[in-house]
Design a protein around this nucleic acid. Sequence first.
DNA 1: CAACTGACGATAG
DNA 2: CCTATCGCCAGTT
Length: 112
Amino acid sequence: MRISRKATSEVSSFSHRAISIIQKIPRGKVATYGQIAAYAGNPYAARQVVRILCSSSEKYGLPWYRVINRKGQISLRPNCGYEIQKALLQKEGIKFDKNDTIDFERYLWTAS
DNA sequence: CAACTGACGATAG
DNA sequence: CCTATCGCCAGTT
């Protein structure tokens, strides 16, 4: 097994894995930053996911709008993509309650 | 090369 | 429940 991984971590681009995961989010579902980070290997690396989404969303054609925060809400600030994301999600059939919160019970994506 | 920043999250108080 | 703090990695400055 010639594992050349460092003992401290598994390496292999956390980013690349995160990207693969993000691309797996099915239409009509959403995932949280922490979720993706956890699947990529680091439950605490939610922030990196943000960076990836921000810098590689167009490059890799990532469904960035299907990624939201832990509260089930959109993290973007109004007038900064917030409404765009919300519109895209609603277009896929995702509903928001009166608090602009997404119902995880119905829409949260879980890896198989 | 060091410091800062980022659409966050878990934990502690 | 809410606020505060630390941590995560990578890309920028």
